[in-house]
Write a protein that binds this DNA or RNA. Structure first.
Lengths: 158, 158
DNA sequence: TTCCTTAATAGGAATTATTCTTATCTGGGG
DNA sequence: CCCCAGATAAGAATAATTCCTATTAAGGAA
């Protein structure tokens, strides 16, 4: 479950270096937020990170955790898992298909591919539980977001 | 963009039948919510569905839309796209990897696979925008959720 | 058709998730 | 050591989702 001690050390050092390289200040809070994320592979949500960090840094604010996570994600130092938008998006198309997701505006486009419909899922995955379906998610920046310059981030489009 | 008229008709009829078959009442609101979803491939969020339906069914409540979407999803009549939990989940592991997601409790487990790391993405996807990465998401029910009976749905685990 | 049971709904309050605002603080270059 | 732009704390504000309760209506039975 947990990451090995030495590996954790290495990742945290690498993170610190990466911050400096990218012009991000190496603050105590930032290091702790990254630590909370790197110390396990549980993919915690922001509130969980906040709780974990708070036990080590008294007085840290939720906002700092949210802001730090967003900053690190925008710098490519961490990733959002699965969920990309603040709100759930629904799909009435139950046929096998895959998604292109714009990380800037949340746009989702469908595409289909015979090859991708039947992926070879490793046997190890079966030990996690019953498998119902698999789907490919392609992340990128859609054409219209690429045009309008470095516009500010926006919420899921209607 | 839009689905053809006859195809839409067919899907709505099939939906109505499926409701009956699964013991769900075929209510006006339910049909309209499904219609709002099936009429386009824009993967709207709950609020968008609410706005669309409200223009046809005066007085429908947000709660009905949220409840209906959750019900239909639990019956396998619609799907949630990309986002699975109410809150964003983060990942400090930037190495190429894929996810098993439990649709019952939100658990996320990582797995890796050389084959899946380099999938053949159809050329059509390139027309949507710049591609940054692709990842496989396997959905299912984890071992511990499979054990504890038909327990109620829960929020993202900490 | 009419009646009945109970799932489903409306409306709004409550809760949860996330972002914003403002005053204050501090990492790290000079 | 000094400075200041980038970071933070605290809590208000906003957005997303669920809960609560009284009322309505789908659809099986009579």
């Amino acid at each position: 479950m947990a990451v090995s001690k030495s590996e954790l050390q290495r990742r945290i050092q690498a993170f610190s270096d990466a911050c400096s390289r990218k012009g991000l200040r190496v603050t105590h809070q930032r290091m702790e937020v990254f630590w909370a994320l790197a110390v396990s592979d549980a993919h915690p949500d922001a509130e969980s990170v906040y709780q974990r960090v708070r036990s080590r840094v008294t007085g840290i604010s939720r906002d700092t955790v949210y802001r730090t996570l967003a900053t690190l994600e925008s710098k490519g130092l961490i990733r959002k898992a699965a969920a990309l938008g603040g709100s759930a998006r629904y799909d009435a198309n139950m046929a096998n298909h895959h998604h292109f997701v714009c990380t800037a505006c949340g746009l989702i486009k469908d595409f289909s591919s015979k090859v991708l419909d039947d992926l070879p899922i490793p046997k190890t995955v079966e030990s996690f539980g019953r498998i119902d379906a698999s789907q490919v998610q392609v992340r990128g920046v859609c054409v219209s977001c690429a045009k309008r310059k470095p516009k500010k981030r926006r919420r899921s489009p209607k």
